[in-house]
Amino acid sequence: MSVLSVRDLGIEYQTTGGGVPAVRGVDLEVDRGEVLGLAGESGCGKSTIAGAILRLLPVKTRITGRIELDGNDILELTPGKLRAVRWTAGSIVFQGAMHAMNPVQRIGEQIMEPILVHGQSGEREARIRAGTLLEQVGLPTRRLDDYPHELSGGQKQRIMIAMALACSPSLIVADEPTTALDVMVQAQVLQLLRTLQHDLGLALLFITHDLSVLVEVADRLAIMYAGKIVEQGGAEAVFHSPAHPYTKALAAAFPAIGDMRFRGRPSGLGGDPPDPQQIPSGCPFHPRCAEVTPACSSVTPELWTAGPARLAACVHVSGAPALEGVSR
C-alpha cells in the first residue's frame, strides 16, 4: 500500500502579479520502504510539492487535487487534525539545517519537542527516545546537551534527520538535504539516510536538483519540468537510458570518471527554465530541446509508456501516438 499518494496536484501561488502556477497536475506514489527521487531544476515546482505534502505553503496558495498521506486526505484536514498528522505521519528534512534549529535550545530539547507536542510519551521517555535517535544517526548520546553552534554542518544535518525520525513517521520528505554540505560529509549523510530508510522500512521522498545523488539513493525517479512530471521509472534505467531529452541533458551533466566521452566536453542544457506565468505551448521543454520536432510546439505530451515500467512525456517515446514528422 502506498504511504503517499498524490493525484492530479495543482498548486498556484498568489502574488501581487497574479497567480503563479508552480505545479500543474502531478501524480506521485511512494510505497512503504521505497525511495522516490524527485529531480528537476530550481523553479520546477519540486520543493512546492514537498511543502504541499505537509501543507506548509502560504495560506493563500491555491491547491487542487488530492494528497493522501498514510490514509489522511491532507488537503481536507482540519487545522487540529493537520497538526496531529504533521510529524507523526510525515516529516521533513530541510536543506538549511543551520537555520532550522533554535540556537539557544539544547539539541536534546529540540529532538524531544515533537515527541512531547504530540503527547507520545512523558519527559523521561522522550529523553531516552532522543538518545536512541542520536545513536541511530551516528552521534553519541552525550551530544543531547550540546547547543547547535557546537556542531558541524554534517552533524547538524544528522540532528535534523533525528528530529524528522522522532515521531516514527511513515514518510520522510528530504528537500535538498545534502546540498549545502561538503563532499565527504554529503556522502556520509547520504549513506546514513539510505541505511536508516532500509532499516526502518521508511518511505522516503528525496528531492534534489542533483540527479547523481538520486541514482545512489533512489529506487524510482520522477523528473520534473515546469510543474509537471516528464519522466518516471526505475532509478538506474532512467539515469542510464533516459527517454526524455530533458532527462538526457540532466544525466549528461554528471560525468563518469574514466569515461572518455566526458573528457574535455562538458555538456549541459542551454537556456533557462520557463517563466511559470508564460509556459511555452505544446511540450514546455521544446524551446530548449535538442530533439525538437515541428509537432512539439503544438502537441502537449502526456506521460506515455516508454518501456517496461517507464513513462515519459515526449513525442519520441514508443507509447506516444503517431505524429507527422516525428521519428522514433
Binding site: 547523481s212 551533466a253 562538458p266 555538456s267
Partner: peptide, 14 residues
Amino acid sequence: LDASVRGEILALLM
C-alpha cells in the same frame, strides 16, 4: 548553479 546549467558554464570556460 543548478546542475543542468553547470555544463554550459564549464563549456564556456573551455
